[in-house]
């Protein structure tokens, strides 16, 4: 019997409801995070897709940036999809003027690495730790161009491009599993959260 995992979804902008539904389906207790108070008592947090430049501004506007950064540095498990990955990455190429991430995940990420929306795509990927191909949707997606020491590569495109990584408590994917109805990456993250609770 594992205890219930209480997982926040940053709910300022973007594909929030899809993550809330996926996490609910895999048995997590979900909290929509809009204010610093909502961060209290979380066992993990999901940073959704959206526009990373907008999420960055809203995190500062609503005074979430500093408390959230402190929680991540303190080991709170976090999963960033697309814009959420950009927020977690230590280095981001092609940032909007003034944009800053939260950092912590030792990777370099290029924003909009595939070009305009006409080049957005869906595919299936082998994902280390998941026993079947994961359905993945890439929307004006970032690509992980460099991976730091100690960071695991969990998934690659057919051409070798890195699209999922994990470093300690931080998980990031270029793609959106929450748009596909395939909940296996959310299950993987909930397992990360439970392991951290029990560890």
């Amino acid at each position: 019997m594992s205890s219930s995992a209480r997982i926040g979804v940053l709910a300022l902008q973007g594909g929030v409801s899809e993550h809330i539904e996926a996490l609910t389906r895999v048995g997590a207790e979900v909290v929509a995070v809009r204010t610093p108070e909502h961060l209290h008592g979380l066992d993990g947090i999901v940073l959704p897709g959206g526009e990373s430049s907008v999420l960055d501004k809203l995190l500062r506007m609503f005074e979430l940036r500093d408390p959230l950064t402190a929680l991540l540095r303190g080991g709170l498990p976090a999963y960033g999809t697309c814009a959420g990955l950009i927020l977690l990455a230590d280095t981001v190429l092609d940032l909007a003027p003034g944009q800053q991430g939260l950092g912590g995940l030792p990777v370099t990420v290029r924003r909009n690495a595939f070009g305009s929306q006409a080049h957005s795509f869906e595919t299936e990927l082998a994902f280390a730790g998941i026993d079947h191909p994961v359905r993945a949707t890439f929307i004006r997606a970032p690509l992980i161009t460099e991976v730091g020491e100690g960071t695991d590569v969990l998934a690659r495109l057919a051409d070798g491009g890195v699209v999922a990584t994990r470093y300690r408590n931080l998980l990031g994917t270029s793609f959106h599993p929450e748009l596909t109805g395939d909940d296996s990456v959310h299950e993987y993250f909930v397992e990360m959260v439970r392991a951290a609770q029990n560890g």
Partner: peptide, 23 residues
């Protein structure tokens, strides 16, 4: 170049709109 990657699907098109929500 890669036949296993599908562009311009309904999910991909609606997906961009999903990412604009709240904006």
């Amino acid at each position: 170049e890669n036949p296993t990657q599908s562009t311009a699907t309904t999910r991909v098109k609606r997906g961009l709109a999903d990412m604009l929500k709240g904006g």
